[in-house]
Design a protein around this nucleic acid. Structure first.
Lengths: 189, 189
DNA sequence: GTCTATAGACTGATAGAC
DNA sequence: GTCTATCAGTCTATAGAC
């Protein structure tokens, strides 16, 4: 009773392969081989290759949306909201490194759910931008173009999946703190 | 006498398509259609699909290597070297937005030239890390894990191609300055 | 739940006419 | 330099046996 179904096993194996070569370059035969079965057997558990991609990406995107809604509705200062966003990315990314690769690089291959994904992503960026803007308005954050700040911070957080696995001994709280310091206070003395 | 050959036209058109869907998802028929010719005609100018990818990626990687060598051999302070690296990324990325997408996302599909690319990339990261470390040693840069700093700054710079085209009116010097401020001095008051 | 066999479409690339 | 025609291989997915 490990509670892990064959379908879930297929999805996590697929995410691992998608991270290495991208969705389009991974064939159902590649996936089957990694599972130790034949390609046709996969279809007893999943409906299509596309369904695997959807399962990986949409659940992650919704996880970010929920996290952002919680942060946004809090009474924290803008800087504290930023710190919580950083913690959110560290947490989700470390729990699903392979899935994060698909979320970042293979979302354009979504078919039926592409527009839904794009709406979630746009909303997330807008919420993030609003936090930065209100931080500027209240004097908490320097008055530099919020667009450049948003881009700089968000791309760093979105790329965490590339970097976390390389340092397996890293403490996640420590990583969140280092990132907060670097992204918020800068790197010079 | 525009000096732009048909081969170059194919490569830039391919880079544009690779940015949208990735190398693996773009077929030679897609590329031919975008050029207004038939797929077979492409082979009068290029040897293979793989050769196109190599042409896009390797020239860009070498451009970064040359830029880094120039910066490294200068007598600037570490902070000034960092500013020059930021300018280097802004300059190259703005000149070849589409190629930067392949450099970032499709390098793993290089065949013959994969190891060469990886060596250039590793060397670049090592040079970057050395600059940060000597900045820490000299007291110019705060003593936080250089690995987290390197990751944070470099992923921001590597993702510039995603963001530059969205703001066509942006002044590149202004962008370099904003980025320097944000990445080096942080965003809080 | 896995297998073999296969359908039907698509892939990169080549041969040879114009 | 571009075309038509085509090859040989691969792709996702299905049918049906065990």
């Amino acid at each position: 009773m490990k509670g892990i179904t064959r379908k879930e096993e297929i999805i996590t194996t697929a995410a691992k392969l998608f991270k290495e070569k991208g969705y389009s370059a991974v064939t159902m035969r590649d996936l089957a081989k990694a599972m130790g079965i034949k390609a046709a057997s996969l279809y007893n558990h999943i409906n299509s290759k596309q369904d695997i991609l959807k399962a990986i990406i949409i659940s992650l995107a919704e996880e970010f949306t929920e996290g952002m809604q919680l942060i946004q509705s809090s009474n924290d200062s803008c800087i504290d909201k930023l710190k919580k966003i950083i913690e959110l990315h560290v947490k989700i990314s470390s729990q699903n490194i392979y899935g994060m690769a698909s979320l970042n690089n293979d979302w354009m291959h979504l078919e039926e759910h592409l527009k839904y994904y794009q709406r979630l992503r746009d909303d997330y960026e807008n919420d993030f931008r609003d936090i930065l803007k209100s931080g500027i308005a209240s004097g908490e954050i320097i008055d530099i173009k919020p667009e450049v700040m948003l881009f700089s911070i968000l791309t760093t957080l979105r790329s965490l999946y590339l970097w976390i696995p390389k340092k397996e001994d890293v403490n996640l709280d420590e990583l969140s703190n280092s990132l907060s310091q670097i992204l918020i206070k800068g790197i010079n003395i």
